[in-house]
């Protein structure tokens, strides 16, 4: 999947990846790739500014800890982040239902 198509959804994807768990940056990237069956092809470096943006919005918080001698920054959802994720999920369901009603059910779909 092209990076440009993903950018608009990156925040929602990150929120969904952090749903119910606390992960460090690379674990988030791995979870995103595994969750998409490897289809998400985004420069991994773009995930970190997006995490900062979510932190600014109060949707995630981060903590530093030392694991195996290395400093790691781990991220988790806040209550506001959980609410934002729920809203993103509802909006996505509504969007796909509407688009699928046209693209998936039109006469060209049966051709």
């Amino acid at each position: 999947m092209k990076p440009d198509a993903l950018r608009g959804h990156l925040d929602a994807l990150l929120l969904a990846t952090l749903d119910g768990r606390q992960l460090h940056g690379y674990a988030i990237i791995e979870a995103l790739q595994q969750g998409s069956g490897g289809a998400l092809d985004l420069p991994t470096g773009t995930v970190y500014p997006a995490l900062r943006r979510l932190e600014r919005a109060g949707h995630v918080v981060s903590d530093w800890s030392t694991v195996g001698g290395r400093k790691r920054r781990t991220y988790r959802l806040t209550q506001a982040g959980q609410r934002a994720l729920n809203a993103e999920r509802s909006a996505w369901r509504e969007f796909t239902t509407v688009i699928d009603g046209v693209l998936g059910g039109g006469k060209w779909a049966q051709q």
Partner: peptide
């Protein structure tokens, strides 16, 4: 410094993978 530490960490994790 925090951004660079996180970047180095991520790159090291990726290379180990």
């Amino acid at each position: 410094r925090d951004l660079l530490t996180e970047t180095r960490d991520s790159l090291t994790d990726a290379s180990e993978a």
